[in-house]
Amino acid sequence: MSEHKTHITSYTTHFMVLLALLILTWATVSITNINLGPYSVTAALLIACLKATLVLLYFMHLKFDSKILKISFSAVMVVFALVILLTFFDYLFR
């Protein structure tokens, strides 16, 4: 089906993304050795989210895909976040 012209991600882009991912991995490992107190979880999760976004956008090609995929993927994330939030309405106030 040639209704969409396919976007070909170059080898260089892939390699640069991998480089970024490895740097972020290094960052998350070294951050554990610094005592950030309650923020260490937040920092680790933020970096993980950043890495996941890179994988999604470039490796999984989401950046160049149709709108419906982007919207529905965001919907999955929003739903999941809301479910965690609502579950914690129980555990935070018990």
């Binding site: 998350t28 260490s40 993980a48 996941a52 490796f59 999984m60 090609h61």
Partner: peptide, 26 residues
């Protein structure tokens, strides 16, 4: 091939979260 690749990336995606949550958050 594209779909197989997508599935493989999913596995990577999950690990990106598993790694800090289990190994790193001391």
């Amino acid at each position: 091939l594209e779909n197989g690749g997508l599935y493989w990336h999913l596995v990577d995606l999950i690990w990106i979260f598993l790694f800090p949550l289990f190994y790193l958050i001391h």
